[in-house]
Design a protein around this nucleic acid. Structure first.
Length: 564
DNA sequence: GCCGTTTTCGGCCCGACTGTTTTCAGTCG
């Protein structure tokens, strides 16, 4: 048996590859779909799936049965499931990649492979150039053209844009459109409305007294660099900085149906429609049809739509098919998720004592202007060597009265070293109001053990950005979040949702698991300047995606209730 | 392969678009 268990992402990768290979072999597509669903479920499950499977408990997850659990056990025990090992020998490895070319699906790829004997990308290019693809029934010159264009394009698409970069722009566009005289209802949709951490296109749904005027208005805004599509009810534009906005003007009587459809997620909508079918209802973006009476229900309001289908209203952040439909059906959703306005303070910020851009006073004044009751200054301990921490403490002390009623807290961000020790002595930590401990290097050197060790220190109040991931740049460290949660619970240590746009760490699923276990979760900006204190809006969005209520977020409480 | 407020067998979301076809399969979101 392997000594270390495979990560959920590795297990999920194997199921996805298996699904691809089965699809190419022409296996029943519902079986393929079952593997795909299992893969995405495994990917976002906070608990180690291999451990669950070995204990015979993976079956408790909806979508995993005895067969898939058995395959997970094989992965845990020998590294790869048998079904995959067998099929990898039958299908040439590059053939799978053909399916990622736009326009080529499993059926077409299979015929190109088996009927033309094409097994590599180079051979595929040659077959298209030599006009051999068109010898297959159903393929023509256009297909060859598309294949060649796709092969000539850059291999991977652009990385997804950070929500933190896209959302302010999107909300600004929504506001501008709302101001137009022809506009009635305007709302962002898609993954940005669900506040996913990264987005591709930015969707906007609107109703208007004069749809043509509204779409035309969008295409003429000064920041528009390119108009990709422009019709009477739809327009797509690209901004100077490369963001793609998609505006759809829809009829007011079905605005609710369309907004719901275009908000997604796909998985949420599929599950919602499957559930509806079982009750004799057919759901589409145009309405809900009663299959027997043929009557169609259309509504201006999403709230009414969910109510009609028998659900509590489901906030967009929860629409990922992670149990929200079942919960909403039995009235089990949180009555109210945490909101930005619930925050009473920020417990992780930096100043120009380390790598921040503003002074302690500037940060304090900005925090007070935001309406905070408290602010912890947590500069990097490394930069405060040689008595810096003490001198900064004196400055904070001297400022306290001047920034009232804000409560200015002496904090510090200490580094968890490779051996699990901290870079500040216990004596110095004892003088601080709030201590954040974070891993900043050596991510592959037992991160779990080091963080757990740091939590044992009674002065450590919070673990900063627990997995260290940076979206699009650095994978999360191989942190066993379940162990972190257990240890945080035992030691009373808080876990951070770091709101930096490229961190958002903990992720939603981990924050949810932590809060459900009773761990104190803190939403911090990690702001390095006054203008970045507002990043907490992203952290709050992440917390909402993790189903967190205000009760479960530590810094919605007054400082005396938090003070260690 | 999974699952059950019509089912332990027989189902499994919906509609638009594309390219290729004379009625539709495959792909996409």
């Amino acid at each position: 048996m392997a000594t270390t268990l495979p990560r959920n992402a590795d297990v999920a990768d194997q199921f996805e590859l298996l699904a691809d290979l089965l699809e190419l072999e022409g296996t029943d597509m519902f079986q393929v779909l079952a593997y795909r669903r299992a893969a995405s479920l495994i990917r976002e499950t906070p608990r180690p799936i291999a451990e669950l499977a070995l204990a015979g408990r993976a079956k408790e997850l909806p979508g995993i049965g005895a067969t898939i659990e058995g395959k997970i056990v094989q992965i845990a025990e020998v590294g790869e499931m048998e079904a995959l090992t067998k099929r990898k020998q039958r299908v040439p490895p590059e053939v799978v990649s053909f399916m990622r070319l736009p326009g080529l699906g499993p059926k077409t790829v299979r015929r190109i492979w088996q009927e033309l004997g094409v097994t590599t990308v180079d051979e595929l290019r040659r077959a298209a150039e030599l006009e051999q693809l068109r010898t297959l029934r159903g393929l023509g010159a256009k297909t060859e053209e598309n294949v060649l264009r796709a092969l000539a394009a850059k291999p991977a698409g652009p990385p997804r844009t950070l929500l933190g970069a896209a959302l302010p722009a999107l909300l600004a566009v929504v506001a501008v459109l709302r101001d137009h005289p022809a506009a009635e209802l305007v709302c962002e949709a898609g993954s940005a409305r669900r506040r996913r951490e990264t987005v591709r296109d930015l969707d906007i749904i609107a109703t208007a007294s004069d749809p043509k005027a509204l779409t035309a208005y969008l295409t003429q805004l000064e920041w528009v660099a390119e108009v990709s599509a422009h019709g009477p009810t739809k327009a797509t534009v690209v901004s100077q900085n490369g963001l793609r906005f998609d505006l759809r003007v829809v009829p007011p009587h079905s605005y609710g149906n369309l907004l719901q459809h275009f908000t997604g997620s796909k998985h949420h909508n599929v599950a919602l429609r499957e559930d509806a079918v079982r009750r004799g209802l057919s759901v589409s973006e145009y309405g809900v049809q009663d299959v027997e009476t043929r009557e169609v229900f259309q509504t201006r309001s999403e709230e009414e739509l969910y109510a009609y289908l028998g659900y509590q209203f489901i906030p967009p952040e929860l629409r990922e098919n992670r149990g929200e439909l079942e919960a909403a059906r039995r009235g089990g959703l949180p009555a109210r998720l945490v909101e930005h306005g619930d925050l009473r303070g920020d417990l992780h910020t930096h100043t120009n004592w380390s790598d921040g851009r503003n002074t302690v006073e500037e940060m304090a004044v900005a925090a007070r202007e935001r309406g905070y009751e408290y602010l912890a200054i947590c500069d990097h301990a490394q930069r405060l060597r040689g008595g810096g921490l003490e001198r900064q403490a004196a400055e904070i002390e001297a400022l306290r009265e001047r920034v009232e009623p804000l409560r200015l807290l002496r904090g510090v961000e200490v580094n968890v070293r490779a051996d699990g020790s901290l870079d500040v002595s216990d004596d110095e930590l004892a003088g601080c109001d709030w201590v954040v401990a974070s891993v900043h290097s050596g991510f592959d050197r037992d991160p779990t053990g080091r963080i757990v060790a740091a939590m044992q220190n009674p002065h450590v109040d919070c673990i900063g950005h627990p997995t260290g991931r940076k979206i699009n740049r650095r994978e999360p460290a191989d942190v066993d979040v379940t162990r972190l949660i257990e240890s945080a619970l035992a030691t009373g240590t808080a876990l951070e949702i770091n709101s930096q746009p490229d961190r958002l760490d903990l992720i939603d699923a981990h924050a949810r698991a932590a809060a459900e276990a009773g761990v104190r979760v803190v939403v911090n900006s990690d702001g390095h300047g006054i203008e970045t204190l507002q990043y907490v809006e992203l952290g709050i969005a992440q917390a909402r995606r993790g189903w967190l209520t205000a009760d479960q977020v530590l810094n919605t409480r007054p400082w005396p209730e938090i003070a260690p």
